[in-house]
Amino acid sequence: MLSMINVSYSYKTKSKVDVEVLNKKSMEFEQGKFYTIYGASGCGKTTCLSLLGGLDSPRDGVISLDGVDIKEIGYNNLRKNHVSYVFQDFHLFSYMTAVENVMLAINISGKIKNKKDAKEKAVALLESLGLVDAEMNRVITKLSGGQQQRVAIARALATDANYILADEPTGNLDKENTQNIIDIFKQLVLEQNKCVIAATHSESLKKQCDVCFSLEA
């Protein structure tokens, strides 16, 4: 279980004004469930994901994984082995192919050293997300938005992380692709016991999740 316990977070603006984003928030995320953190822009959704993924530290409170503070686990270790990100803008390497992007994540995790095995795994992941051979070997810029987001999800799965943190994963997608991505998330939750946590202001995502945490600005 990934937990956020009494977490408060604030940041300073350019004019040195303190802006409080989260105030004593607590949330728990279990494997095998699809969560959304819902709210308008500026309410702290992305901040929650940053804190859960160890990219930022809370002012107060604790983020823990299975009862262990993530500070003790180590942030790099956390992102290599336990949590993965899926971004709204995909944030893939545009000059690499789909396979190469996924292999990069495998390479960084250090779980598979052999290049051939890493490629096999990458191909398998992309196939499971509906990409065909020709698409896998295309440079990212030659893929559609929906395809790119699948590649991003495949990259997130490459490290065998149990917790997928998705920041506005359907923000740049059309209706059809949005539903495709939601279906993929549900499949991951059901079949692979993953925990998907999506920060979103999308109603359709909110309606189709298992648990929704609402935040207010």
Binding site: N76, K80, H91, F93, I108, S109
Partner: peptide, 14 residues
């Protein structure tokens, strides 16, 4: 920056 952001998000050591 972009490249570094991806590496950090993927858990690459500093």
């Amino acid at each position: 920056y972009y490249e570094a952001g991806i590496y950090i998000a993927l858990g690459t050591e500093k």
